[in-house]
């Protein structure tokens, strides 16, 4: 069961001359948003449980610059990016795992040209790898056995970077019924948060994007809507509330589902 975990920071590791296997890039939502912090903690419990030698940057981490860049503020983005790259290169980071597809995309695709080249993986990929290696096991599907789960593809994980299988493979281990929405994978509909929309009111229209997407999910009557992005999580949670279905449908990150099923939470 849950235990108190000391989360190592890079500064501590470096001070004791240690080098982590992987850096856990937490991201802004994962650091500050109350709902997303739970996802962060689930990821940490998995890393800890599997004996992965990891570290976080703590207060040395800063926004990757994604919301600024997508909103058109290339200056602010590059300022953020260069500072982050300085820190990461200073610690000679080679491999990064992150719980946020926006951080994942920008570090994987856009940081290299600015001098920051790392192997970047999304947490669902790492979880899938750990399961394949047998380091992470879910006995008998855990508490989600037989439940209907539908996975909402985050745009910046799926369409943007072609990662569709890892989260699904991980979810299959839950021994639940994985159902696909009619728009899924490369045709998946956005939750409405990307491109800095998360931080502004929607433009005038006749519907919210997250409501449209929640309708897709409701059509397949799931018990759980699985996500892989803290922003999608917020959007889908709000969408489910909009239909007053929160007592029937849970919105949870893949990391939370796996950690819970593996008795880590």
């Amino acid at each position: 069961m849950a235990e108190k975990i000391q989360v190592p920071t890079m500064a501590q590791m470096a001070a004791s001359g240690e080098v982590p296997e992987i850096l856990f890039w937490v991201g802004c939502a994962g650091s500050f948003d109350d709902r997303a912090k739970k996802i962060t903690k689930a990821i940490v419990r998995i890393l800890h449980h599997c004996g992965v030698k990891y570290a976080v940057l703590g207060a040395e981490e800063s926004c990757t610059g994604d919301p600024a860049k997508r909103a058109g503020n290339e200056f602010l983005y590059q300022m953020q990016a260069m500072q982050n790259i300085q820190v990461l290169n200073g610690y000679e980071i080679k491999k990064i795992v992150t719980g946020c597809p926006h951080c994942f995309n920008i570090m994987k695709n856009e940081y290299p040209e600015l001098g920051g080249t790392y192997e970047v993986v999304h947490h669902t990929q790492l979880i899938n790898d750990l399961m394949k290696e047998g380091r992470l096991q879910v006995k008998d599907g855990g508490s989600f056995k037989g439940k209907r789960i539908t996975f909402h593809d985050p745009c910046y994980l799926g369409r943007a970077n072609d990662v569709y299988e890892a989260p699904r493979k991980a979810l299959e281990q839950l021994d639940s019924e994985l159902v696909e929405m009619k728009r899924c994978k490369s045709k998946g509909l956005c939750c409405g948060a990307g491109g800095a929309q998360m931080f502004k009111e929607a433009e005038p229209g006749n519907k919210e994007v997250n409501v449209e997407r929640t309708e897709d999910a409701l059509e397949v009557s799931p018990n759980v809507i699985a996500t892989g992005c803290p922003f999608c999580n917020t959007m889908m949670t709000d969408g489910v509330k909009n239909f007053e279905k929160e007592s029937e449908i849970e919105v949870k990150d893949v990391a939370e589902l796996i950690a819970e099923a593996a008795d880590l939470i």
Binding site: D33, A59, E61, M198
Partner: peptide, 16 residues
């Protein structure tokens, strides 16, 4: 603050 919300940067590691 190094984040899109107005939280102090120093609190970034607090969740841990």
């Amino acid at each position: 603050n190094g984040a899109p919300w107005a939280f102090p940067a120093a609190d970034r590691g607090k969740w841990a």
